[in-house]
Simulated scan of single mutants.
Amino acid sequence: MSLESNVNAALSDVIDPELGINIVDLGLIYGIDIQETVVIIRMTLTTPGCPMHDSIRIGVEHRISQVDGVSDVQVEISWDPAWNPGKMSNKARESLGL
């Protein structure tokens, strides 16, 4: 597997503690930039005042740092575009009863 594939798979292990759904299925990941062994994750949260902001960011940093070949992880939180439920996967919508 490529480093990008491994990073994508690892992001699915990070769960939003309030919703119990991984951040990929929630549609929170806006982009992944890999520069040699440095991984930059551009992501959002469900709301700007999300009480789990630090928990989720730290979870991403921790999980991606465990991927073989990664020397550094940077997480950039972006509010543009704003998250909305339309960004969720069908699996996430079903889990939430939407």
Rank of each mutant, 00 (worst) to 15 (best):
S71E: 14
N6S: 10
N90A: 14
I23W: 08
D68C: 01
S78A: 11
W83C: 01
K91E: 10
I32Y: 11
I32D: 12
P51C: 14
K87M: 00
S65L: 09
M1N: 09
Q35A: 15
Q35D: 15
T46K: 03
P48Y: 13
L96V: 10
A92S: 00
N84M: 06
W79P: 00
S89C: 04
V60T: 02
V73H: 04
E4D: 12
D80E: 10
G97C: 12
P81F: 09
K91Y: 11
L11M: 06
I21E: 07
G86H: 14
S71R: 09
L11N: 02
V73G: 03
T44P: 02
E76T: 02
D25S: 08
V14D: 01
D33F: 02
R42C: 06
L96S: 00
D54Q: 15
Q74T: 02
I64C: 05
V39C: 10
D33T: 10
T37K: 15
L26Y: 09
W79M: 08
R42N: 11
S12M: 11
D68T: 04
I64F: 03
G97A: 13
D16K: 04
L3T: 03
T37E: 14
M52R: 06
I21H: 08
L19H: 08
G69F: 07
V14C: 00
I58A: 10
C50P: 14
D54F: 12
L26E: 04
D33I: 12
I29S: 07
W79I: 06
M88R: 03
D25G: 06
A10N: 04
L19S: 08
V67W: 02
E94M: 08
I40Q: 10
I23P: 07
D33S: 13
V73N: 05
K91P: 01
G20I: 00
R57P: 01
D33Q: 08
I15V: 15
G27C: 11
T47Y: 15
G49Q: 14
D25E: 12
S55T: 15
E94G: 00
S2G: 12
H53W: 05
G49K: 13
G69H: 07
W83H: 02
